[in-house]
Every structure is written in C-alpha cells, then in structure tokens.
Amino acid sequence: MDQKLQELWGEVMEEKKQCKGCGGALPFLIGFVAAVIAGWVLFPNLLYSKKVQPVRFSHKVHQEQGMECASCHTFRDDGSYAGLPNNEKCMECHADVVGSDPAEKIYVEQYAQKGKEVPWLVYQYQPDNVYFSHKAHESFECKECHLEVGKMDTPPVYYENRLSGYSKQTMKMWQCERCHAENGVSNACHVCHK
C-alpha cells in the first residue's frame, strides 16, 4: 500500500517536471478572457428574462394628442399616487376602436370590452418594503427617474431579474440615497422603507 502511494506521489512530481514550460501563461489567459466574456455578456443574458407589454401602448401617440403625463398618471385626493390608469380612464376615449392601430383594437376587444384590466408590466415598481411618495417628488420631471417613454412608439422590453424577481430598471437604493444626500433630504431608513 505504502509503495503505491509513494509511486503516486512520484507520478505527480514527474508530471510537474514534464509540464514545465508547456503552455506558459497562455491557458491562464484563455481562462481569464473566457471568464470575462462570459461574465459580461453571457451572464446578463442568463440573469434576465425578457417580457413584452401585453398591449403595444404608444406613449408618443398620446403625447402628440397634447396629453401630459399627469393626464393619465394621477394623484388621488389623499395624496397617494394612482400610478397606471385603469380601464375606466382609458375607456373615456377607447370605449370603442377609434383609430386604425391594431394595438388599440387588441386593447378594446380583449380588455376594455371584457372588463378586464391590462396586466401592464411596470418598469420601476419598487419592492413591497419601499414606501415611495410620488407626491414628495412632484417637483421632479418624470423622466428624471423613469424611462423616457413619452417619445416611444413601442414600449421598451421589460427585463426581469431571475434571481431577485425585480425589473432591471427598478431604482437601486444607492441611487435613492445619493439623490437624497445631494438634496439634503434625510436618508433615515423609514424615509423610504415600510
């Protein structure tokens, strides 16, 4: 038994000698570069799943009609933010098909007329543990935090992080903290968390 082990060790030593000089730093570099590529290109693709909005809503068309963000994204009387408009709001104009865009037809026929709310994907929903007051941030322009969808005909793809379950565009805490710090606003936990 001992003999065998001795031999094994010998082999290892032998191999080491043989290998001296073979390959040099090249394999290391190959591994390094491969990992860097995988980490920066492959990994993000793996990490996020892609989703598209149920209805191709064009913010651009609506804005061209002279509507503002606040025309549909409104505050309630208690100062809370209604966020996305519901059917009731959309149907003020789209109770029936009024235009020629097929997306509108889809909305009217599959949602509005069936009384079903559209399951919109929200790019920047904060997790449940965040209390975000739109009212307190009213003085900022929407686009300072949100994707500038106002100019888009097709809503952007929604990326969902497979690990954390959040949208890729969900604002990270450090971003909130930085802006608060720059503006002299408290960064105490409960200013944003619930």
Partner: peptide, 18 residues
C-alpha cells in the same frame, strides 16, 4: 497543468466581472 491554469484564469477573470 494546463487545465488548472485555465481554471485559475477563469476564476481570476470572474472576479473582474459582475
């Protein structure tokens, strides 16, 4: 040995990725 080098390189490279 080459394999080990690749692995070590891979690990090192990974540290420079997110």
């Amino acid at each position: 040995r080459g394999f080990v080098k690749i692995v070590v390189g891979g690990v090192a490279g990974t540290l420079f990725t997110p």
